[in-house]
Write a protein that binds this DNA or RNA. Structure first.
Length: 543
RNA sequence: GCGCCCGUAGCUCAGCUGGAUAGAGUAUUGGUUUCCGAAGCCAAGGGUCACUGGUUCGACUCCAGUCGGGCGCGCCA
């Protein structure tokens, strides 16, 4: 890639100028386009250890660079306190178009992390109710993150963990039984933490219609879990989330002996102790703020034991990069799980696993917060969100915020002002290009052979420069677990395109000009499409 | 009380391992089409980056404290 080439060249310049034997310059896009195509602040950073004025360092660096000119570079200049600005030759900026057209839907992909096994766990909703907006955010983030990791060559495994062993399922069963018998919430025998949503009634009706016996708790449980699992899957499919590779059941950790094995391992490593009739793990040895109970005095393990056992399973299945996507309300468990894994002393690294935490989603409508969903009882569901504003807008919106920042989803904004909606803006750019290409009636081979030197407009240069950033954007988003950069990037590409569109016409008489411009358009459409696909958002040909 | 996260334009949010004049969208105002999609483009106004101190040649960014908000702090999951 061009950027790496330039960094090599700059590094050589640093060496030959005798400024440093080890420093590697960081190359970034200047905020102001007038400053050039690339900039580095390496002279500022080297000035201090050298005890020299930054501008002086920059001057000798510049001289070294000019002594061995780079074929892509047209100009090197010093600016401000000692920045080195680099300007590329025009041809260097447009060469990316040929790359895009050649690579097609694989443009932006890399094999930098080829073969790296990565497990991403997300959604992991218990089968006790419909998916809510928090799950929606998780599904959008998780699916996109998986896609991003795949662009880097990772072998990605999507996993959904669910609790089918705890008392929440018993609670669900009891709630369905009572509702089926006509008991209303808070009626006779209704448990304090019973599930109150309308869906409980629906499940009860379905169960009765199937001819089941309400008093058969096992039958009710199985039926209810099935209905809810199916419904969750349906919502996820409607949301465009790729199929999970594995649904991991908590109960299996008990039946296959992993829980017992984990307890034994922790005892053997000597970090457990008995107190008040319970078995504890000294998680404070590993940075937790208090020790945790493993086995209750009344018998049975706390949820945290299977959690640790589960992560041992991830490790033993060969996933040394693991990302758990969870709500920030679970952040307290991070230290615990990590501590448990450390206490086992089986060589699992300290920071394992990684977490991508997201905060909850507030839904606004008509200027006030929507909290009540009739169907779910308390929270807004994923299904309702999709119904209100459509899959594309929901996915784009939910991913386009930093995961840990609180997010207010304004239904009215996503709906009534759909023309100003960023997702439509990006999709519109794509559709507009498709329209131009249709009118242009040009073949792929003609585009591939376009004489790109016909492109001269500065807005065309700006657009091509943006397109060239795509691979780096994907790599950074995957590395930093930051899917939100992708929607921002796509918006910029769309803006650069619209701006160029208004500056120069595509369908001109001169064949050489027309072909080159259409090649630029086609490459832009390709990048937009590739990016939208990673977000799970459609790229319509017309709208 | 303790821990984690957050506080940037009226509103919703970006700001990469500290760097050049803090950016988008939206809202407001003004332009823009006999010609490829005006769901567009061009421009203007709008900021003590919560506050205070510190480190640094340089701080929205790092550190400490204060204020304000969210979430945790169970022998629930």
């Amino acid at each position: 890639m061009q950027k790496e080439q330039l960094i090599e060249w700059l590094t050589a310049g640093i060496r030959s100028a005798g400024l440093s034997e080890t420093a590697v310059p960081a190359l970034e896009r200047p905020k102001q386009a007038e400053h050039g195509d690339w900039a580095t602040n390496i002279a500022l950073q080297l000035a201090k250890p050298l005890g020299k004025n930054p501008r002086e360092v920059a001057a000798s660096f510049k001289a070294a660079l000019e002594a061995a000119p780079h074929p892509l570079v047209s100009e090197v200049s010093i600016a401000g306190p000692g920045f080195i600005n680099i300007r590329l030759k025009s041809a260097a900026k447009f060469s990316v178009l040929a790359d895009v057209l050649k690579a097609g839907e694989k443009f932006g992909y890399s094999d930098a992390r080829k073969g790296e096994k990565v497990l991403v766990e997300f959604v992991s909703a218990n089968p006790t109710g419909p998916l809510h907006t928090g799950h929606a955010r998780q599904a959008a983030l998780g699916d996109t993150l998986c896609n991003l990791l795949e662009t880097q060559g990772c072998a990605v495994h999507r996993e959904f963990y669910y609790n089918d062993a705890g008392n929440q399922i018993d609670n669900l069963t009891r709630s369905v039984q009572l509702r089926a018998k006509g008991v209303v919430p808070d009626g006779e025998g209704w448990p304090d933490d019973g599930y109150r949503g309308e869906y409980i009634v629906e499940i009860g009706k379905l169960f009765l219609a199937s001819g089941g016996d309400v008093n058969d708790a096992n039958a009710v449980r199985e039926f209810a879990v099935n209905v809810l699992r199916n419904e969750q899957d349906k919502d996820l499919t409607a949301f465009g989330v790729k199929k999970f590779d594995c649904y991991y059941l908590e109960s299996s950790l008990y039946t296959d002996g992993r829980v017992d094995k984990t307890v034994d391992g922790l005892k053997t490593s000597g970090h457990t102790f008995e107190q008040d009739g319970a078995l504890w793990l000294k998680t404070t040895d590993y940075g937790d703020d208090k020790d945790r109970v493993m086995r209750k005095a009344a018998g049975g393990y706390t949820y945290f034991v299977p959690d640790v056992a589960y992560h041992v399973s991830k490790w033993e299945r060969g996933f040394h990069t693991v990302v758990n996507i969870q709500g920030t309300d679970h952040h307290g468990t991070i230290a615990r799980v990590r501590a448990g894994l450390q206490a086992l002393e089986v060589g699992i690294p300290k920071g394992y696993p990684d977490y991508l935490l997201h905060s909850m989603v507030r839904v606004m409508r008509g200027g006030e917060e929507v909290k009540i969903s009739k169907r779910a009882g308390s929270y807004i569901t994923l299904g309702e969100l999709i119904e209100w504003v459509g899959k594309d807008a929901v996915r784009f919106f939910l991913v386009s915020r930093k995961a840990d920042s609180e997010f207010t989803f304004d239904i009215d904004l996503a709906l009534s002002q759909s023309e100003e909606n960023p997702v439509f803006y990006v999709q519109y750019a794509h559709a507009r290009i498709c329209s131009v290409l249709r009118d242009g009636g040009i073949s792929d081979t003609a585009l591939a052979n376009a004489d790109l030197s016909a492109l001269t407009h500065e807005k065309a240069e700006a657009l091509a420069t943006r397109l060239a950033d795509f691979p780096a954007v994907l790599a950074a988003a995957a590395r930093d677990l930051a899917p939100h950069v992708l929607p921002f990037y796509l918006r910029e590409v769309a803006a650069a395109f619209h701006s160029y569109y208004n500056a120069e016409r595509f369908l001109v008489d001169d064949v050489r000009d027309r072909t080159a411009r259409l090649a630029l358009a086609a490459a832009t459409a390709q990048v937009l499409k590739n990016g939208l696909q990673l977000l799970g958002v459609s790229a319509p040909d017309k709208m």
